[in-house]
Design a protein around this nucleic acid. Structure first.
Lengths: 273, 273
DNA sequence: CGCCTCATTGACTAATCTCAAATGGAGTGG
DNA sequence: CCACTCCATTTGAGATTAGTCAATGAGGCG
């Protein structure tokens, strides 16, 4: 691909200059490959690296003392992995690849270089972290308030939306390396129940999850069923410099604000951290 | 109280100089009172303030289209409310007081002043945000993987631990304005079921939740039952300046690292963001 | 072929929810 | 002080959802 998923994603929100594109290219010189099942980040790594996925899928999860695991998030091409754990010693999550992965390893030093030299990318990083948080909250809401079938539908609609952003979702679905066991660990259900629920959704003519592929048979119906509101994936930008001094010295920002964002402004979605 | 809960909490992690204490005092000049049920942050507030609670409890929650709500977090004296929503336009959560509350309103301008003038406090803010994230992840894990009784026990143990940090938990329990409906909304259960579970826990001789008071009848037993590991509440500090240049120009940091933190280092808790 | 892992299904059990009603304290107006 | 209301709590009975245990099938791979 001539343009990386990362640049693709950032471009969708911000206007990139040659400076930024150059910085991105530099980063991509250090791209490496990881086999399926590799741990990008693991418990106890204190000075580990962060990663920007170029291709492939990964999961971020937490293991419980009793051996159960909760998948906190799925990571797709263009996503950051382990950034917050780089900035702080506090995170306590692992990241593991679900497919072969190409990723750019970002050392802590580099991250700070990017922060100081390319404020726009720093902003992109902050934006990504915040988006992560919004997804985790949405995940919590789903696990807490939605039925099993709605959770499954909601998760797959979210993944579709995110894949669409990096050009990896087709017109009616997407290729999906996630197993039913993964869905179970992400949604707090058993694999057996996931299987039954998937069948119900399929028989209802809404969606098919089979042979590593998700197909939306009735997209509108599924969105309605799952109560899916993509707003949380597509939130506003961090405060930009023309409004006030940005927290990370991110000056000279030129942020783009697509029209479709505005329809989520001032709507019925409360705010806080 | 001669020392504010906020200063108290920050002091437990960092050595404060006169400079920082002065800044804290300045902040507290703008302290205000809010009645029970006030909304500190509400949907659609785009340029709203943040708050530092001085006394009282609040909840941070998200409302679903169907009227259900998921309580994402409880806020106690010394906690920040709505900080991330100040920095970004992205958050979509409300915050409401559960008791009469005294809080310091922090305008966006002030926040940036603090960031540039008092790096140590900026670090404290970042630390608080990260701690929030860790709590939300833990919350997600709980709702996804724990039984109803374990969730209840875990939540109340967490609150006890956090209250202890600001000197508001007694030897065997704490005063708690949270209703069974709140527990239900936080834990993804029905109030009816919460009630039954509380009875079971009480009859098991572990804990009593009655008349606005939580009493631990068998603390060790409860910790064991809930699989409670306080580590996530007490994580490391953000990277400090003597190790590398801090992300928010937070130089000249003097961070304290209590011994009890170290026992959580390099242990079996995976890391990522 | 033999051995994986993942998907699928059935029969049964356990957890949680729904609906409904009773209790009890705190405040309010008479 | 009493009657009344409001709200949180408590309990019961039955329905629903999800989990457990167990077995089978299907595909990939050495």
């Amino acid at each position: 691909m001539s343009i990386s998923p990362f640049a693709h994603k950032v471009s969708s929100r911000m206007r990139l200059g040659g400076h930024e594109l150059g910085a991105i290219s530099d980063l991509h010189l250090r791209r490496r490959k990881y086999a399926t099942g590799s741990h990008l980040v693991l418990q106890g790594d204190h000075d580990h690296s962060g990663f920007v996925l170029a291709s492939g899928w990964a999961i971020v999860y937490k293991t419980l003392p009793d051996g159960e695991r909760q998948i906190v998030n799925f990571k797709l091409p263009g996503d950051f992995v382990g950034v917050r754990a780089m900035l702080f010693r506090s995170a306590d999550l692992s990241a593991e690849t679900l497919t072969p992965v190409e990723a750019t390893e970002v050392k802590t030093d580099q991250l700070f270089n990017v922060f100081t030299q390319t404020p726009l990318l720093a902003t992109a990083v902050l934006w990504a972290i915040t988006r992560d948080d919004a997804m985790i909250v949405e995940h919590l809401v789903g696990v807490g308030q939605r039925s099993a079938a709605q959770r499954v539908a909601h998760l797959l609609l979210e993944l579709d939306e995110r894949l669409r952003l990096v050009g990896m979702a087709g017109k009616s679905g997407f290729s999906c390396p996630v197993t039913q066991y993964h869905l179970a660990d992400a949604l707090g259900l058993t694999p057996v129940h996931i299987n039954r629920v998937l069948r119900e959704i399929r028989l209802a003519g809404l969606m098919t999850f089979q042979q590593g592929r998700v197909t939306f048979d009735d997209y509108a119906g599924l969105v309605d069923f799952a109560n899916f509101d993509r707003g949380y994936l597509d939130h506003g930008d961090p405060l930009s410099a023309d409004e006030r001094q940005a927290p990370l010295a991110a000056d000279r920002l030129q942020t783009t604000r697509p029209d479709h964002v505005d329809k989520f402004r001032g709507q019925s979605r409360p705010q806080a951290d």
